[in-house]
Design a protein around this nucleic acid. Sequence first.
DNA 1: GAGTGGTCTAGACCACGAG
DNA 2: TCGTGGTCTAGACCACTCA
Lengths: 243, 243
Amino acid sequence: MPSRRQAIADDIRNQIATGQFKAGERLPSEASLASRYQVSTPTLRNALMLLQGEGLVEKIHGKGNFVQHTSRRITYLGGGRTSREDAAVDPALHVSVRTVRLQAQGHLIALLKVPANSQLTQFLCIRSEGGTPHSLARIYVPCHLPEAGPLCESPSSAGFEARLMDLHPPLAEIRECVAARLPTPEEAEILRISPNLAVLAITRVAVDSTGRVVEAAQLVFPGHRTDAYFITRPVTVKKRREG
Amino acid sequence: MPSRRQAIADDIRNQIATGQFKAGERLPSEASLASRYQVSTPTLRNALMLLQGEGLVEKIHGKGNFVQHTSRRITYLGGGRTSREDAAVDPALHVSVRTVRLQAQGHLIALLKVPANSQLTQFLCIRSEGGTPHSLARIYVPCHLPEAGPLCESPSSAGFEARLMDLHPPLAEIRECVAARLPTPEEAEILRISPNLAVLAITRVAVDSTGRVVEAAQLVFPGHRTDAYFITRPVTVKKRREG
DNA sequence: GAGTGGTCTAGACCACGAG
DNA sequence: TCGTGGTCTAGACCACTCA
């Protein structure tokens, strides 16, 4: 037996699919929807949360629930490649960067493989598109790298990518760890998402050919709007002989 | 001002960290915790849901809330590599496989790049460790591939991996798309997770050197216990000359 | 049957957005 | 100020587990 909220979510989803609720339109208020479906407000809100998790509905506090324009998804490309939708290309995209110098502590020591209390540069980046936050990035660069300076002047993703490509010694490997988790209250506020909806959290470490960590990044994306793509070409090994 | 459930979650998290609640132990019942913290049961349950999302607490219907043993995380390795924790190695792991032959329909046509209604083999795999479901995999193999048959006899991940390594023409590329979303009711039931907690959904497509899709897989993991790792070695390109 | 968590109710109160 | 969504309450009822 499907739960109440599932049934309501299914019904509203159908109405969106059949165009009875159109993209960009505002849904009836939660109170009126609740009375229409004969459920209490928390139950109706649960149903809307499901649709929000599918990227079909956007909730805006004080204004209402809106049918999302489709294909507003965020694309993250693994392997250090920059997606086409870069701030340098798309004027609707905006990136704010705050630079902080700090000392390595806690998990950053292991992540960057640096001694405790060594100097780091942290870049706090928030990407937005037309007022809607897209992603939150905390990028750490050890200060022993000469490239750490000029970065501040090219805060776009392309700037970071170009830096990694021009390293001496060259970049050898990028390791990325992807997880789904609930946002911290701060992340939920910055990304303007419900604290009940998961974020896609990516920890990225770039290593040069000497094994030194040249950059570590903690990236957070709203889970319901993000796809992360990874393309791998298998190392061409000799065919295994087993048994 | 932190919300009520956050404050409660913080407090219980501390008690777990300081060992006042030990790993494997059962927490007091939700009713007693609610009265201890002077909140209603839904609010207390919300706090526990946060801890569940962090992998600290496991809820078992009819039994209670238990402090999770740490390091029970699930590891997914991208790029078609198999993690060490394989059924062939670890006897505690169990994989159940159901094989279904079906015709390509809907999104499978685009995913596998096959004509509509062409024959496919679907493998429905559920991995468990000691009774706890780990992952749900729907693996699709086009029937035009001669390797489709023997697969059924080696349902471990290693079997799938070995098959991809022995292809003619050889495997050229693996594309993986990672997303965080709420589980469908069926997925929540199979994985035994709360329908409010996100899953990590990975769509994996393996392509051989002729561009043909040799396998597509839709993998679902419980988000609060899973890390997906991707390691990329950048293609060594000539240094860019720009501006 | 006793105790547990899962879902839902019918409302209260607060915070935000727009006029 | 008014309507909106966000959070919380105090309880009801059901499903599951175990003795």
